[in-house]
Amino acid sequence: MSLATEYFLLAFVCCLGVLQIVANANKLRGISFFKRPTLGYLFAALIIIGAISWFFITEDRIVPGLTGPDMALWFFVGASLAVITTLILSSLINRRMSPSMGDPEPEEKGLGVLKEITYFQAIRRHLRRGKQR
């Protein structure tokens, strides 16, 4: 595997973990893989520490390798893929999710919507409202 591919994988896995931390910390239930926040944090810690350990233990990284722009590019690709993967997986895992009783109405736009519903549900609702107009 090339260094670029390995760095991309590192970024992808770490971003998946970071998204789970953010989802639990900000109560974004729609993008969380787990119902219990503790499990989410544990999962995130395990995959982030695992990925970093794998990256640094398997090869000597104190050698000239990727340039700054290369790293930025591969991080961007890895992060984008992590967002897409999280949105798809969480939408499938939480497909039976419905707004909890007594909670305020979901925000009209933005990430805040994902506190109450999944990404697929948000898109569906958006499209339905578009048709009604």
């Binding site: 760095y7 970024a11 971003c15 970093i52 640094f56 990284r61 104190i62 390798g65 790293m71």
Partner: peptide, 14 residues
């Protein structure tokens, strides 16, 4: 490892 091109820049990006 701390001085490497990969760890702390990755932390910043994350």
């Amino acid at each position: 490892v701390l001085a490497s091109d990969y760890l702390i820049p990755l932390v910043f990006a994350l």
